[in-house]
Amino acid sequence: MSVTDDAPQAPRAERKPDRRHVRDVALPRWMWVPAVIAFLVIALPVLGLLLEADWARMPELLTSEAALAALRLSLETAAASTVLCIVLGGPLAAVLARGRMPGLRTLRSVVLLPLVLPPVVGGLALLYLVGARGLVGEALRLGFGITIPFTTAAVIIAQTFVAMPFLVVSLEGALRTAGERYEAVAATLGASPALTFRRVTVPLVLPGLMSGTVLAFARCLGEFGATITFAGNLQGTTQTLPLLVYVQRETDDAGAIALSLLLVVVAILVIAVARPRNTEGIR
């Protein structure tokens, strides 16, 4: 049916055929089997944690001094790293998506490195760069008396290192999808590049920015390898939740499980807050 020019259009939802009237034409039946297995691979371990948990001791385990310190440190450092990812990674994504100089492809591959690199290797690399005898570390120590490794700053740097690609990749994708056509229109309407960026570009890529932020934050919360290598495991300064879980497991299974469940809850919260539109590939 064609919509005539002046006919007010019905809201989109009303024009879509009802779900129960639509026949699946792109889903072979056998696919259900591996799909269900895949789902179980993800869901069952979490269920296992729930079954193993010692619910009676839960309040006590979760409110131990070490646990509270770790939770607080985790949230604070993850938030700080996420802000760094946005402030630095946002412009990087814009350069990658809109820049016209040669060598951008190489640049993009480098940005993806932390995604595929084992985090421990990332931590080592950071240590050799910013460590006491590292290239930058020595200069910082001699010039300003600053040492980075094994401080809270090191935790933030390690998390930023591993989480940055998540933000850059989703934001760059959003920028590319939005294209430059709207920005060109804004220019012909008299909007300066700064105004266009604020009123057109940012709102258009907001969903991508949101999902990138959530992914980066979640990656920061779960960060282990780079942190323990580069920042160590000092309660109150560098011992984040995943590190505490690892240490607890050696001595107290129940405590480790309780803290793990806490991380699961935080992860679910993060997904629930931001997922609905933003990771489902709309625009």
Binding site: V185, T188, L204
Partner: peptide
């Protein structure tokens, strides 16, 4: 002179209304 200071309007094939 950059596009935004030319006073040249553009109407293309697609409306390209800002969706937000």
């Amino acid at each position: 002179v950059p596009p935004h200071r030319r006073g040249v309007g553009l109407l293309a094939q697609q409306a390209l209304l800002f969706p937000h």
